[in-house]
Design a protein around this nucleic acid. Structure first.
Length: 153
DNA sequence: CCAGGCTTGGAGG
DNA sequence: CCTCCAAGCCTGG
């Protein structure tokens, strides 16, 4: 079966996803949408409904490179919570700056919740727009999207 | 090899 | 409180 591509809306943005079953190859935020399906969990998450992004896998966590280890550590941050670049660096055994680089190049945002990694003093950065990060964190803090899709509400 | 990145902590005004 | 500066780590060109 071939890799699927599609997008779904998130506020003023669209999330483009390249995937196959529960494995995500690529995700990115863009101004325009493209036709095609996205995984149900991502669809529900973007709609602000109960979902479980942790059930999805990312190609970014494969291998034993420093970046892969960073992505695995980031993936363990619970929905609704945050960790600093320094926290992740300490856990992985690298420097905060390296964590920042890894987040900036995260090939699968959402699946690798780089939006939950904040600076020690502030929210930190997020491309293409830090407003997306704020929206995601705000949404998670309200608990609506956290947890398996048990529907309800 | 070198620039640059979603950092951080310390020095100094 | 704010600006400036260097240490430190990794990846892509």
């Amino acid at each position: 079966m071939a890799i699927l591509t599609g997008s779904c809306r998130f506020g003023l943005w669209y999330v483009h996803v390249a995937w196959q079953d529960d494995l995500i190859y690529r995700a990115r935020f863009a101004r325009e949408g493209i036709p095609g399906p996205v995984p149900g969990e991502i669809l529900r998450y973007c709609a602000g409904r109960s979902s479980d992004l942790a059930s999805l896998r990312s190609v970014a966590t494969e291998g034993d490179t420093t970046f892969a280890r960073i992505y695995r550590a980031v993936r363990e941050i619970p929905c609704g919570e945050t960790a600093t670049y320094g926290d992740i660096a300490l856990a992985v055994g690298t420097a905060p700056r390296a964590v920042g680089s890894a987040m900036a190049r995260n090939p699968t945002p959402l699946v690798i919740p780089c939006h939950r990694v904040v600076a020690k003093t502030g929210i930190g950065g997020f491309s293409p727009d830090v407003a997306i990060k704020e929206a995601l964190l705000d949404m998670e803090r309200r608990g609506k999207v956290c947890g398996a899709s048990e529907g309800r509400d």
